[in-house]
Design a binder for these strands. Structure first.
Lengths: 208, 208
DNA sequence: GTCGAGCTGTTATATAATTCACAGAGTGAT
DNA sequence: ATCACTCTGTGAATTATATAACAGCTCGAC
């Protein structure tokens, strides 16, 4: 693959799809790039550019066919098969994320949960069976889980990440505020809430 | 201000500070740019460039003085006064965020919570008094809250955001997967978990 | 039919962000 | 004292990302 696609483009495609699914439900058949742009907070040029990357093409008169575009994006994002995911750390955040996805069409199905707390192990929480952290490697391999979500405290995140990697997980979404040191063939995306909150605070202060 | 500072730089400064606080606790007095880089997953050049922006300078022989740098960043980020924040929507996510901050030194103090659920109103949840959403404007003005965190479902996020703005809030951290339409003097940062998860899924798929 | 309006696809341009590269300076060994 | 080493601070080069610009097409009005 000579032209690597950027994570930003992937993110926007995901947003387009979400919006398109909504519009489809509302019975919208076609739309123009500037409409999709307005709906997602982006410019029309950006939208056209992104659709170019996945090779989708609309007509100048009607714009883009909602359903076709939706399918095209889905094919592109999901590739061939769906990914399976696991949540590590069933605190409030873990539960929030689990509760967030059932309804939503997404390219990841969260199928398992892990925690150290023996009181949670064996139970079914927000629809997913909960296992002990020590079983992670085995279960991940058994279920063929490829995406891990880390919602544990910072001090255990690295150990948990390493177990995920041993379980053959290829991508990690990390909410713990630590830099994970992992083999470079594992894709890591950090979501550092406190960092982002500080960004907001900074710019709020400017806007006096 | 001719040279506007980017949100990415602010984010990294916040990361540096967190790491420096930790190191200070461990008794570390000095460090070099490449060490701070390793600790935060960034390059040494990036670190030096960021510190240049805030006008901090180290010595070639000793590197940077941990405590001084820490203070310098804090002064820069917090500006003059601390910001006060409010959480809107006390589901699992809201609670997770509230639970996340008490221990942590941050430039935002979360001092209030809002929800529609009458069962929560009036109670104290994770250390913050909970008010009804309708009181938002009044309370925000009374307490001089300048940062809002939206953790409500998507369909109410816009209305909540507008109320925050009426309450004179200047910055919003939005977890709902919608594009908020607000006056441009309000700083908005979106954290779209499902989008980021799809990014991770995509690159996990690539790494077969 | 012919014209005008408004859109797409794509190239060109502009802007932002990161990395490189190196002069200058302090330090320790000899 | 001198040299070799390794770091910082910063301009220059590079890379990534977003915006602008426009040719070409399609359709509806006349």
């Amino acid at each position: 693959m000579i032209n690597v696609i950027s994570d930003k483009t992937i993110g926007r495609l995901s947003q387009y799809r979400r919006m398109l699914l909504q519009l489809k439900q509302q019975g919208v058949k076609h739309l123009f790039s500037h409409q999709l742009g307005d709906a997602t907070g982006l410019t029309a040029a950006q939208v056209r550019r992104d659709l170019m990357v996945i090779g989708f093409t609309g007509s100048p008169s009607k714009g883009y066919h909602v359903e076709e575009l939706c399918n095209k994006i889905t094919n592109f994002l999901d590739g061939h098969e769906h990914q399976l995911g696991a949540i590590c750390g069933i605190g409030n955040l873990g539960r929030a994320i689990m509760g967030y996805f059932p309804g939503r069409k997404s390219s990841v199905d969260i199928v398992a949960a892990f925690d150290v707390d023996q009181a949670k192990v064996g139970r079914v929480i927000v629809g997913r069976r909960c296992y002990h952290i020590d079983e992670m490697e085995t279960i991940c391999r058994q279920m063929n889980i490829s995406v891990g979500i880390i919602t544990t405290p910072a001090d255990t995140a690295q150990a948990v990440a390493e177990q995920l990697v041993r379980g053959n997980v290829k991508g990690i979404l990390n909410f713990a505020p630590v830099v994970l040191k992992l083999p470079k063939d594992v894709y890591v995306q950090n979501m550092d809430v406190s960092m982002v909150l500080e960004i907001v605070a900074f710019f709020s202060g400017q806007k006096k």
